[in-house]
C-alpha cells in the first residue's frame, strides 16, 4: 500500500509538469497585456513598453517558462505582477477561506445527500422518491448565483440571521466562523447534494435488488441495518467516486460563491488574476488546484480499499 501511495505521489510530478506547461502556454498565447492594465487607461504606449520590459514580459517564451519553472522547483511560485507580493503568500492568505468553505460544504452535502439518496431508493416509486428527485433536479438546474442571491436576500437582508458578505476566520470563534459560511455552503452545496443524492439512489437501487439483501430481509434483519450496513457499504464505491469527481465542480462553484458572498478565497483570487492577466498568480493557483485534485483522487482510490476489501493495490 505504501509503495502504491508513493508511486501515485511520484506520478503527480509529470502531471504537474504538463499542467504547468499547458497553463503557461495558454497564457502566453492568450490576448491581453498586464503591462497595459497596470499602466492604466491614460498611459502612453512608451510607458507600457517600459513597464513590460521592467517586468520581463518582453522576453521569449522559453526563457520566461524556464525562469518560472526554476523558481517553482525551488518552492517559489513567483511574485504577483500587480501587488508585488509572493504568490505563495497570496494563496496562503486565501486558502483558509476556501478550505473552510469546501470542508463545510463537503460535510454538509454528504450528511444531507447520502440519507436522501438512500431514502429515495428505499421508497422508490413513491411520492417521497419523487419529491427527493425533484429537489435533486432543482439543485442541478438553478444556477449557483441565483441560489446565493435568494439565500442572502432572505436570510441576511430580510431576516438578519447571517451576514450578507465577508468571512470570519476560525480564530474569531467557532460560531462567527460558521455563521459566515452557512449561506455560502448551502449555495455551493446545492449541485453537490443533487449529484450525490442521485448517484446514491441509483447505486442503492441496484444493490437493494441483489440476492444477499433479499436473504438478509428473509433472515429478519432490520430495515436500518439492511440499508446502512449491508447495502450502503456495497454501494459506497460509486458514491465515493462521484464525491471525488464532484470535487472539481466544487472548485468551480467556489469561484462563483466566493464572488457572491465576497469571501476572500482562492477562487476569487483566480478570477481577479485572470481578469488582470496576473500570470504568476494564475499559474500558481492552477498548479495548486491541480495538485489538490490529484491528491483528492488518490484519497478516493485509497478509500475504495476501505469499502471493498477485494480491491488491493
Amino acid at each position: 500500500m505504501l509503495t502504491y501511495i508513493l508511486r501515485r505521489v511520484a506520478a503527480t510530478i509529470p502531471v504537474m509538469g504538463l499542467v504547468a506547461l499547458f497553463v503557461f502556454s495558454l497564457l502566453y498565447i492568450a490576448p491581453g497585456d498586464p503591462a497595459a492594465i497596470i499602466a492604466g487607461d491614460q498611459a502612453t504606449t512608451q510607458q507600457i513598453a517600459h513597464i513590460r520590459a521592467t517586468l520581463g514580459l518582453d522576453k521569449p517564451f522559453v526563457i520566461r517558462f524556464a525562469d518560472w519553472l526554476w523558481q517553482v522547483l525551488h518552492g517559489n511560485l513567483g511574485t504577483s505582477i500587480f501587488t508585488n507580493l509572493p504568490v505563495l503568500k497570496m494563496i496562503e492568505q486565501r486558502a483558509p477561506t476556501t478550505i473552510s468553505l469546501m470542508v463545510i460544504t463537503l460535510v454538509m452535502s454528504i450528511a444531507i445527500a447520502v440519507p436522501m439518496g438512500v431514502l429515495a431508493a428505499w421508497k422508490a416509486g413513491t411520492w417521497v422518491d419523487r419529491l427527493i428527485m425533484v429537489m435533486a433536479v432543482m439543485g442541478f438546474s438553478v444556477p449557483v448565483f441565483v441560489v446565493g442571491y435568494l439565500l442572502a436576500y432572505t436570510f441576511a437582508l430580510k431576516l438578519p440571521w447571517f451576514p450578507v458578505q465577508g468571512y470570519e476566520p476560525l480564530s474569531h470563534g467557532v460560531w462567527p466562523w460558521l455563521r459566515s459560511l452557512i449561506l455560502p455552503s448551502l449555495t455551493l452545496g446545492g449541485i453537490y447534494i443533487a449529484l450525490i443524492a442521485r448517484i446514491t439512489r441509483a447505486t442503492m437501487l441496484e444493490v437493494l435488488s441483489q440476492d444477499y439483501i433479499r436473504t438478509a430481509r428473509a433472515k429478519g434483519v432490520g430495515r436500518r441495518a439492511i440499508l446502512y450496513v449491508h447495502a450502503l457499504k456495497n454501494a459506497a464505491v460509486p458514491i465515493v467516486t462521484i464525491i471525488g469527481i464532484g470535487f472539481a465542480a466544487l472548485i468551480g462553484g467556489a469561484v462563483v460563491t466566493e464572488s457572491v458572498f465576497a469571501l476572500p478565497g482562492v477562487g476569487r483570487l483566480t478570477v481577479d488574476a485572470i481578469l488582470q492577466r496576473d500570470y504568476p498568480v494564475i499559474q500558481g493557483v492552477v498548479l495548486i488546484f491541480s495538485f489538490v485534485y490529484v491528491l483528492v483522487n488518490l484519497v478516493v482510490d485509497l478509500l475504495y480499499t476501505l469499502f471493498d476489501p477485494r480491491i488491493r493495490y
Partner: peptide, 8 residues
C-alpha cells in the same frame, strides 16, 4: 472592503 458583486 472589496466586494465584487453589485447586488452583494
Amino acid at each position: 472592503h472589496i466586494i465584487p458583486d453589485a447586488a452583494t
